[in-house]
């Protein structure tokens, strides 16, 4: 079983990202489970969402304390939340930032992957909403969900022109991270 924790701020689509990973994992013929760290929704406040993907039915329902992968949608969270808490040493943390990873001073032995998702979002979507771009980066960096399934899951959620733009953004993020 692989466990994923997503950090973001209210309004950045962290819960949606978790749901899309669960749908994509299912498309890959695996079992999946996604849920938010249920809070009173407030725009801008730190939020978390969780995903599990496994080859067997998933029974455990506690929150995720030792993730294999962490996604951070907003680099300013590093000042207020220990985003790498409990991250497995052989895991990966993917952060949306324009800063080089050495400057992030993350307390983790895990591999740090950075991507300037906000820049890609502004170029392709015209809005600083990065959740689908982080999904592309997740596919590229971890291989835990196939790009085809991720595209299918995103297309199910976002239709028409918005869906096409999101697929382009995912492809861009996937390629940047895969070639890094």
């Amino acid at each position: 079983m692989k466990e994923i924790r997503i950090h973001g701020r209210g309004g950045q689509g962290s819960v949606t990202a978790a749901e899309i990973i669960a749908v994509a994992g299912f498309e890959d013929k695996k079992y999946s489970q996604a849920f938010p760290a249920f809070g009173v929704e407030r725009r801008g406040a730190p939020v978390m969402a969780f995903v599990r993907i496994a080859d067997q039915p998933i029974r455990v329902r506690s929150q995720i304390y030792n993730p294999d992968y962490v996604l951070v949608q907003d680099v300013t969270l590093l000042d207020v939340v220990d985003v790498a808490a409990g991250l497995k040493p052989d895991g990966k943390i993917i952060i949306n930032t324009d800063r080089p990873k050495e400057k992030l001073k993350l307390k983790t032995e895990a591999q740090v992957v950075t991507i300037d998702a906000t820049k890609i979002a502004m170029e392709i979507l015209g809005r600083p909403i990065v959740n689908t771009i982080m999904l592309g980066a997740f596919c590229g960096a971890t291989g835990q969900v196939s790009l085809e399934s991720m595209n299918a899951a995103v297309s199910e959620r976002f239709k028409g022109e918005l869906g096409r733009k999101n697929l382009a953004a995912i492809k861009e993020a996937y390629e940047r991270v895969s070639h890094a």
């Binding site: 749901e19 749908v23 999946s32 489970q33 849920f35 329902r61």
Partner: peptide
């Protein structure tokens, strides 16, 4: 509540 009402699972 939440644990089952808001979870996404197959």
């Amino acid at each position: 509540g939440f644990i089952l009402t808001h979870v996404y699972e197959p």
